[in-house]
Design a protein around this nucleic acid. Structure first.
Lengths: 142, 142
DNA sequence: ACGTCATGAAAATCCCCATGAAAGTGGACT
DNA sequence: AGTCCACTTTCATGGGGATTTTCATGACGT
């Protein structure tokens, strides 16, 4: 029941962008060093975030990335689904027809409720939330 | 955010045992065919379940496996932790010292609450629960 | 001696990360 | 103004490592 690195990295990068929202573009290399993310991997993540519309990117000198919307409108559930494909803990839940036992599978309901519990937590956390909390924690630990 | 097959298979096997609790031993091959689990893989799972004390095994003809305790005393959280090692969605949570950002990481709190949400759901489901539900569903779909 | 579990290694698959080339963007220089 | 160059994202490919699955062999109890 692990969270993919992809998601961890992605959230960290987006929080970094959220903390600088409105201050123009941020470059991959800076995000990577600030958040401790392998830069070569982050490059890929940023392009998918761009393709999915969460981030706007510009190439060239003074280029970089910035959030495509206000941090308060992006919640963790959105990020999770765009980065991790579907959030379902088991394929049975998305492709119910694939499972021969789907008709009488008691656990399907359990995994489904696990999924919902996760969604509930994540949907209530926005990037602005995290950015503020991050600023507070940073100030505490000087 | 996937559930390892190990856990899915393990739960299915244990539910099968729970449905026959008190009726003696069940053999790996039968569990495998009934629940659609690769038999050679299930062999490994049953041995770890045996080592962890959830299952009692006997060799020889008419040997097999049975639950070591009453199905009502085994909940999904126990199974999850014994099969999946630790349940934490991110290593940061178990080895907090490994993360240089642990002191001021806003997300750590989020993943922690996700973890708790999952535990809450799983800890309230026992094998007896699942076995009963399974019997009901099987009866419905004849 | 038979049928079962136990154990370890090997094959297949997927995720993380690295590398290199291609393409777009802005600035400087002629 | 036009051309060239430095900078940064984008795209494609491949390797290392962990996980899942299979297979073969050995050990055990009846």
């Amino acid at each position: 029941m692990k969270i993919p690195m992809k998601v961890d990295y992605g959230v960290r990068a987006l929080v970094e962008l959220a903390m600088r929202y409105g201050e123009g573009q941020l470059q991959t290399s800076e995000i990577a060093s600030k958040q401790g993310i392998p830069e070569s991997y982050l490059v890929q993540l940023m392009t998918t975030l761009n393709r999915c519309g969460l981030v706007q990117s510009r190439r060239g000198p003074q280029g970089g990335h910035k959030l495509a919307m206000d941090p308060s409108t992006i919640d963790l559930h959105m990020i999770m689904t765009t980065l991790d494909g579907n959030i379902s803990p088991l394929d049975c839940l998305t492709y119910t027809t694939d499972c021969i036992f789907a008709d009488c599978c008691a656990q399907q309901e359990i995994w489904k409720s696990v999924e919902e519990a996760i969604e509930n937590v994540l949907a209530n956390i926005t990037l602005e939330h995290l950015a503020q909390r991050q600023r507070y924690l940073s100030a505490q630990n000087v």
